[in-house]
Design a protein around this nucleic acid. Structure first.
Length: 504
RNA sequence: GCCCCCAUCGUCUAGAGGCCUAGGACGCCACCCUUUCAAGGUGGAGAUCAGGGGUUCGAAUCCCCUUGGGGGCACCA
């Protein structure tokens, strides 16, 4: 089997074309990923294009969020834009639609001249009234064709009145079909397309269905791999490719990512922004692995695959047809798997921003050094489902005044007096250790001996010490934790707990 | 309302007519390990393959119908 990375097929070009009208959406990232996987598997080119013609809703900020999010995930493109202001990369530049306006204007002009499109003077009010009437009559909404057959004189008269027309594309009768890469043959009668559709607004700015086709044609896109929500739009696009005299690309429609209730994933019901996942401590390896398995499967029983392995095994024929619900539990599990696989120095680097943020938020009083964090790794790495979990897990190491709940301090089988007695006895044993012998395997034997001598259960004493020194009932191994805490603070916290029990 | 798509454990999925007494993973439960929590190990519950008709010697797999779910029908993308 040839190595996919060394194969190269210049005729295969795919693209991701998000619009900067919101932060990078998990669904966009998934579509980008599948395009990336397809391109890399077959040695094609992956193009990134920004569809920013909705000027009212597009912002530079969203643009930056999308670009940075994709970079963070490692879904790199071969051709496309860089962050606002920087130059585009690739032979088909520019890759922002607002910089490609002349191309759409020229294409629209060609369609107009060939009478494949026509000027439409209908007002928003008229169209709205049409829609309402159709709805009342329980008819599907469609353009009534009021301006389809205007004579040259009628058009001239409207223009003379100062009316600015939109441009409508003539939908020809017949059936349009294509062999979908994922769902085989699909055929749709153009009578169900809703009539002639607008390709250029009255203000002269082009609309999505038009720009996407003009650009896919201009950029020689060979395979359009996108979400299932575009299936119904595909006939419009095919019609446009034909009208423009350009060969029709292949289409593949990916299953949608669904909310837990099975509806199309939305901000309302799910967390959709990639940056939010990142902020919660999901790492790219986990997210990528999870996203790739949403609607695709290698066919083997491997659950944990790095991106290179996924590229090597990717096969668009094996992409699922039905939508996939987003399962956060599974994402967290996979994320934990990947955190466990990280090299120590790498993990320390990735943990740092989360610790800094906790310090800024006042969750911890002191920012630990990298060495300090690195020393902790053996006891925390396998306990982190996310990077952010580090604060909950061992944040007690970096706070000045520990908040201890007296109720939690007393083990289930013990009472307050026994607990006070136990902690005091433990303190006495621990005082015998200096800074040199303050090691996990030095601290454990004498405490076990104490338990033995007093007829206690190890678990009870250890739990009391655990809560006294960390404020929590669930922590990394106790003796390692006390070493991380240090002799002085361990003893001080034991004192404080004893005091707390005496007061109560 | 119209058009289109989809349908295997709660969830993600394996399955390309006999390998299926339907496999794996997440989650759940139990046990082991164990000072707690994780991790790891072992085992378990969990799917009459949406239902009904065909085709076939044989159907989760092919065909049809029904049902259910989803998506789309803008001078949004």
């Amino acid at each position: 089997m040839p190595d996919p990375e060394t194969r190269s097929d210049p005729t295969i070009r795919v693209r991701i074309a998000p619009s900067p009208t919101g932060p990078l959406h998990i669904g966009t990232a998934r579509t980008a990923l599948f395009n990336y996987l397809y391109a890399h598997h077959v040695g094609g080119t992956f193009v990134f294009r920004l569809e920013d013609t909705d000027v009212a809703r597009s912002t530079t900020e969203f643009e930056r969020d999308i670009l940075e999010g994709l970079h963070w995930l490692g879904i790199e493109w071969d051709e496309g834009p860089e962050v606002a202001g920087e130059g585009d990369i690739g032979a088909y530049a520019p890759y922002r639609q607002m910089q490609r306006l002349p191309g759409y204007a020229a294409a629209a002009e060609r369609l107009l001249e060939a009478d494949l499109a026509y000027p439409c003077f209908c007002t928003p009010e008229q169209l709205e009234a049409d829609r309402r009437a159709q709805e009342a009559a329980k008819l599907p909404p469609r353009y009534v064709g009021r301006c389809a057959d205007l004579t040259a004189a009628e058009r001239a008269a409207k223009l003379a009145e100062g009316l600015r027309p939109a441009t409508r594309f003539r939908v020809r009768p017949g059936v349009v079909g294509w062999n979908d890469l994922i769902r085989d043959r699909i055929e749709i009668d153009t009578a169900n397309l809703g009539g002639d559709f607008v390709i250029v607004r009255a203000d002269g700015t082009p609309l999505y269905h038009f720009t996407v086709v003009v650009d896919d044609a201009a950029m020689e896109i060979s395979h359009v791999i996108r979400g299932e929500d575009h299936v119904s739009n595909t006939p419009k696009h095919i019609l446009l490719f034909e009208a423009l005299g350009h060969p029709v690309p292949e289409f593949g429609h990916l299953p949608l990512i669904l909310n837990p209730d099975g509806t199309k994933m939305s901000k309302r019901k799910s967390q959709t922004a990639v940056d939010d996942y990142r902020a919660q401590g999901f790492i790219r390896e986990g997210l990528l692995n999870y996203l790739a398995y949403l609607g695709w499967h290698p066919g083997t029983e491997d659950d944990i695959l790095a991106i290179e392995e996924i590229v090597a095994r990717f096969d668009i024929d094996k992409v699922q047809k039905g939508g996939a619900r987003f399962d956060r539990d599974r994402l967290e599990w996979l994320n934990g798997q990947w955190i466990r696989r990280l090299e120590p120095d790498d993990l320390v680097d990735r943990l740092r921003p989360f610790l800094e943020r906790a310090a800024e938020a006042g969750q911890i009083d002191r920012l630990p050094s990298d060495d300090e964090v690195r020393a902790l790794l053996p006891i925390v790495q396998e306990r982190l489902p996310t990077l952010a979990a580090i604060v909950d897990l061992v944040g007690f190491l970096w706070v000045e005044d520990l908040d201890v709940d007296p109720g939690v301090l007393i083990p289930k089988r013990w009472d307050a007096a026994t607990t006070r007695d136990g902690l005091a006895a433990a303190r006495e044993v621990l005082v015998a250790h200096d800074g040199v012998t303050w090691e996990a395997d030095e601290l454990e034997p004498p405490l076990r001996a104490l338990v033995e001598a007093r007829g206690w259960k190890a678990g009870d004493l250890f739990m009391a010490i655990r809560v006294a020194t960390t404020g929590r009932t669930a922590t990394p191994p106790l003796f390692d934790t006390m070493v991380a805490l240090g002799r002085d603070r361990t003893l001080a916290r034991l004192d404080a707990a004893i005091g707390l029990l005496a007061a109560a």
